[in-house]
Design a protein around this nucleic acid. Sequence first.
DNA 1: TATTGTTATACTCTATAACTATA
DNA 2: TATAGTTATAGAGTATAACAATA
Lengths: 154, 154
Amino acid sequence: MTVTDPLPTAARRRPSPDPSLASDVRIAVNRLSRTLRAQKADTTVSDAQFSALALLHREGAMSLADLSRREGVTPPSMTKTVTALLDRGLLTKDGHGDDRRKVLLCPTADGDDLVTETRQRRDGWLTPRLAALTPAERKTLTAATDILRRLAAQ
Amino acid sequence: MTVTDPLPTAARRRPSPDPSLASDVRIAVNRLSRTLRAQKADTTVSDAQFSALALLHREGAMSLADLSRREGVTPPSMTKTVTALLDRGLLTKDGHGDDRRKVLLCPTADGDDLVTETRQRRDGWLTPRLAALTPAERKTLTAATDILRRLAAQ
DNA sequence: TATTGTTATACTCTATAACTATA
DNA sequence: TATAGTTATAGAGTATAACAATA
């Protein structure tokens, strides 16, 4: 992944008021991310397969080149992932119509179900733990989530 | 792992305090973690290698069994990772002393430097971006970091 | 010629099973 | 017998290079 995006202009002007905040945020985010990853317990499909399937579920059918570009892997690598999903009956592969070189990859009903169920299971670990927080803490997390998302998008 | 999932339809209907919060937190945390992980100081060391080295740097020397347990991989897998780190001069492997079956793995000066530099680089990416936020946003992140840490510890 | 997708090949990280040295 | 670590082997997932079919 390339991470050479330029800094926002404002970032070059203001001094950091709390030098330890960066470390604190980084460590907290990495630890929780690791904990969440450990809750997957999804034995049916691998991470790479689920990620590709979820993208198709979310954005609809697309070609192999588009899928590999969106997932940040090479076409040969995506061919392998797609083959595994086809073998498991989670995808269909059809002609693209206008361009006979292209294929159109689309989740099956089983594929759509798997995405929905897996997502609910992954949220399922976190949901009761968030419910155990105070309303004020949840409000803080809601606001922080938006900030974290903006940081990750840079 | 996909990190840009939209809200699950079911989550919008659930009568919890904030049904979408679990998805939002999970996605935001995973995305930022992924972005931060990409800020490596040394591209010759893989993620698995850096993760093991950073654990030894943080917690001090330990045996291969302890290291593999803490990293959540099997001993044979950790043997490979450790061998690569030894070959790169980032670790030392010595006898454990009391039990001659055990080994004691310890970062070298170069290993410690690599961890420190990588950490500074990752903080260095985040610090100016945090400085570009408003004081209220930084206050929110400070409070959220504590909550995230407690969640990760469960 | 350029693009789409596949095959061939190789490297890394992971695992299980079987081995050795020691306790 | 049990434990610590290694070696052997295999399965994913990734990559680059080379190819066929199509535009």
